[in-house]
């Protein structure tokens, strides 16, 4: 037997008792019919698949989260790479600078984006001063673009941090060795740097994609009349109507989607290796 098992037991114990057990309670609810004296049923799950809107909203949310993840990756990888390889001094300060904005409420930040993105807002004023846009309105506010901008803003720092953490440990000697073997910079990157930073990319993608699926504040404040996502549906079941059972069922369908995509991701990671 593993004699260091005590190292992991506190965390696992905590998660089993305070996450898995509560989830069993919710699984139970998701199979319960509405009303008093509910009985076992799969109606809540059936409802989800029988009505177009729920599938439609789920697909919309998955797509949105996917865009947010890809854009975050495109911003974060170069950022982490530059921090590690070009900006040697002060990279810890930079790391702090990336985390500090999180000290502000997500909701308050969404309103800030409203001030920036709306027609006649700060972005429009600045862009016009720079003669980058004409005199027409910016037209960004209350679009899915506005939602994605605000969501990338919230989530990409996680990705920078995880990628930075793995890149920083990429052995300089390996890179040098590769160079001395006359491998071009691109080959070195593809064959040495990228594979070694993969754990950071995977961790980062999880930290961006998964929470994106449950978001509902940014779509509502910035998304206009199309600001409904699957997270809104779950919130409604508790705050607007008494629909816990259905809300729990939707959550578990989401969970299944997430676990499925993580399985795909890890298979993909293995094949590459």
């Amino acid at each position: 037997m593993d004699r260091k098992i005590w190292l992991m037991s506190p965390a696992v114990f905590l998660l089993l008792i305070f996450c898995v057990v509560p989830l069993f309670i919710m699984v139970y609810y998701s199979f319960l019919s509405d009303g008093t004296g509910g009985h076992w049923t799969i109606q809540n799950y059936m409802d989800f698949f029988q009505k177009d809107i729920y599938l439609k909203l789920t697909w919309k949310t998955v797509k949105m989260s996917f865009y947010v993840t890809v854009i975050s990756l495109l911003i974060s990888y170069p950022m982490a790479y530059v921090m590690v390889s070009i900006i040697q001094g002060g990279k810890n300060i930079l790391l702090m600078a990336i985390i500090v904005p999180f000290w502000t409420s997500q909701l308050v930040r969404a309103y800030s984006w409203q001030n920036l993105l709306r027609d006649g807002g700060l972005l429009e004023i600045v862009l016009r001063k720079l003669h980058l846009i004409g005199s027409g309105p910016l037209g960004l506010m209350f679009t899915s673009t506005a939602v994605i901008i605000a969501m990338v803003h919230i989530f990409f720092p996680y990705m920078v941090i995880t990628i930075y953490m793995s890149l920083e440990k990429v052995d300089g000697a390996l890179v040098e060795a590769s160079k001395s073997l006359k491998a071009g910079p691109l080959t070195t990157f593809r064959r040495i740097v990228l594979p070694l930073s993969k754990p950071g990319i995977i961790s980062g993608c999880i930290l961006v994609f998964v929470p994106s699926l449950g978001v509902f504040v940014e779509p509502r404040v910035l998304g206009g009349t199309q600001g409904t996502v699957i997270g809104t549906v779950i919130e409604d079941q508790f705050f607007e109507i008494y629909g816990w059972n259905f809300g729990a069922a939707v959550s578990f369908i989401l969970l299944a989607i997430i676990l499925l995509s993580m399985a795909v991701l890890s298979r993909f990671a293995k094949e590459e290796a």
Binding site: V12, L15, M26, V210, G214
Partner: peptide, 19 residues
């Protein structure tokens, strides 16, 4: 355990809080 650890991330906080 890898899956267990990310579990709290995959469940809406509302549902976790409610349970």
């Amino acid at each position: 355990i890898d899956s267990l650890v990310v579990l709290p991330l995959t469940i809406p906080w509302l549902i976790l809080g409610l349970s």
